[in-house]
């Protein structure tokens, strides 16, 4: 076989592989959306779930998912920024920072159910936080932190060394250079990574089953005092999220319309994650454009 035909054959094989992947993805998305979207209505999105009868919604689960996401990001974004900046800008190459990097890599490859059980032992039992949003947010932080840190570190590392020198040469301290020049320039990459991380967290179930709990007590949306037990903002209440809800009704749901609720909830979840991804790309490109005016 001559080189030209080899090249053609390789190209065809690559196209077939890429096509197969896209086909699977499209089929999966189409199936979920076609099955689920007919069940999605304003009532479905806002009403509380019903355990024994048909007609329940996912309102509380949806709210829980977002609230948990916000809390988890509030904890993990500053931590990952700090860790990423340290690793990229300050850490010297020695066994200690090597150990930190290896630990982060191992942490990022842990199965989420293992992270969930770890969170159950530490946050739920040891710290006595119980099945709560707080336990859930902390475990999501453990789950998400390694990837966010890597993202921050890589975004910063991709900024030219010349920028650091230019900052120093203008009389900026190292910290000022990092904070006022390097981080702003790396911002599009950092923001994109953060939003993609948020999408992952939003769809996470296994890590939350044992930490945020599997029950969604009724919420009183008229009382926003975080210390009131039925307040939506109370971080110490158990909070079943959308992803956990899907898992639960599929494994032990006894409502007559369990299949429909599951399909609808899955569609909502998929749409939300898709929106996260699209927003991440849009915002990243916009920030980059704004900085380069290109």
């Amino acid at each position: 076989m001559n080189v030209k035909r080899q090249d053609k054959l390789a190209t065809i094989i690559l196209y077939v592989i890429a096509g197969a992947i896209i086909l699977v993805l499209v089929a999966l998305l189409a199936f979920i959306l076609i099955q689920g979207l007919p069940h999605v209505s304003w009532h479905f999105l806002t009403a509380p779930a019903r355990a024994f009868e048909a007609g329940g919604g996912i309102g509380i689960q949806l709210f829980n998912s977002f609230y948990l996401l916000v809390l988890a990001m509030l904890i993990s974004v500053p931590l990952s920024l700090g860790a990423g900046i340290y690793l990229s800008e300050y850490a010297k190459k020695n066994w200690l920072t090597g150990l930190i990097r290896t630990s982060i890599e191992i942490l990022s490859s842990l199965p989420s159910v293992v992270v969930g059980l770890f969170g159950f032992l530490i946050f739920v039992i040891q710290f006595n936080f119980g099945f709560s949003i707080l336990s859930g947010a902390l475990v999501l932080t453990v789950f998400n932190l390694p990837l966010l840190t890597r993202n921050v570190e890589e975004s910063l590392a991709s900024i030219s060394h010349a920028q650091r020198e230019a900052g120093l040469a203008l009389g900026l301290s190292r910290w000022e250079t990092v904070l006022k020049i390097i981080v702003p320039e790396a911002l599009p990459g950092i923001v994109t990574g953060m939003i993609l991380g948020a999408g992952r967290v939003f769809g996470e179930a296994a890590a939350l089953i044992y930490t945020a709990g599997q029950s969604a007590p009724a919420l009183d949306f008229t009382n926003w005092n975080p210390f009131y037990i039925a307040s939506p903002l109370n971080p110490m209440r158990p909070a079943e999220t959308l992803a956990v809800h899907i898992w639960k009704i599929n494994s032990e749901g006894i409502m007559p319309d369990a299949v429909a609720v599951s399909a609808g909830a899955s569609a909502v979840l998929i749409v939300a994650v898709l929106i996260f991804n699209l927003v991440a790309r849009w915002l990243g490109q916009r920030l980059f454009k704004k900085m380069t005016s290109s």
């Binding site: 030219s160 010349a162 920028q163 020198e165 230019a166 900052g167 020049i181 702003p184 320039e185 900085m291």
Partner: peptide
């Protein structure tokens, strides 16, 4: 003051 080989303005 110093000017470098690569013309790198800050991203502003």
């Amino acid at each position: 003051g110093m000017v470098f080989q690569q013309p790198h303005p800050f991203p502003f």
